[in-house]
Simulated assay, not measured.
Amino acid sequence: MPWFKKFLCLLSPLLIAVPAHAATTKAAVFPFDIHDAQQDGEIVPQFNPEDLRRLKLVVDELKVLMAKDGKYAVIDLGPHAQEIEKASPFKECNGCEVPIAKEAGADIAVTGFVDKVSDALLSLQIVARDTKTGELTKTMSAAINGNTDELWLHGVRYLWRNRFNVEAPAK
């Protein structure tokens, strides 16, 4: 066998094993919102502190999952805290998070929402928008049947694995 064929035979497994470097998407992950049906009709809702803690828990978990993946770089939104406070809740503003995310240098703006019907029935929604166009790029929802840290985390991990981190089929 000529030397170049031997060389190619030795080199080809290495070429296959080296992943192609895709561009990293910069993501602005905003605090998630909550709607508690038990608070409907209240002038000033008094959200359960455990639910508010779990909202932060699932946001932090999503950020960790995104950072571990390598396809995403999570942008620090700390310098935009006042703008975020004024604009929220994001479930009601139809994309008002996009200019904040764009200003922060992000390619996508990620928001989320928990709809709590009761302690036994909740729904977690995650939405991503392109910061250049404002268009929705991803929308997803998962039912959570129980109100524990592990079940909320299971919901965000499920959405990450099966919806968020899955490429759309080519058209």
Score class of each variant (00 low, 15 high):
M1G: 15
P2T: 11
F4R: 06
K5Q: 15
L8Y: 13
L11W: 12
S12M: 15
P13F: 09
P13S: 07
P13G: 09
L14S: 10
L14W: 08
I16E: 07
I16W: 09
I16G: 03
A17Q: 10
A17H: 11
P19V: 10
P19Q: 09
T24S: 08
K26T: 06
A27W: 02
A28S: 04
F30P: 04
F30D: 01
P31H: 09
P31W: 06
F32I: 11
I34R: 02
H35R: 08
D36F: 01
E42H: 10
I43R: 14
I43G: 05
I43Q: 09
P45H: 04
P45D: 03
P45N: 07
Q46K: 12
F47Y: 11
D51F: 00
R53G: 00
K56L: 06
L57S: 04
V59N: 11
D60C: 08
V64L: 13
V64Y: 13
L65F: 11
A67K: 14
Y72C: 02
D76N: 10
L77M: 10
P79Y: 04
H80S: 07
A81Q: 11
I84S: 03
E85L: 10
A87V: 01
P89F: 08
F90W: 09
N94S: 09
C96P: 00
C96H: 01
C96Y: 00
V98P: 00
I100H: 00
K102D: 01
K102Q: 06
E103S: 14
E103Y: 06
A104N: 05
A106S: 03
D107A: 03
V110T: 12
G112I: 07
F113C: 05
V114K: 01
D115I: 06
K116E: 01
D119W: 04
S123E: 10
Q125D: 13
I126F: 08
I126L: 14
T131S: 02
K132Q: 02
G134T: 03
L136T: 14
T137A: 04
M140T: 14
S141Y: 05
I144N: 01
G146I: 12
L151W: 05
L153H: 00
G155H: 04
V156F: 06
L159I: 14
R161S: 14
N162K: 13
F164W: 15
N165C: 10
V166T: 10
A170F: 07
K171W: 09
K171E: 13
K171C: 08
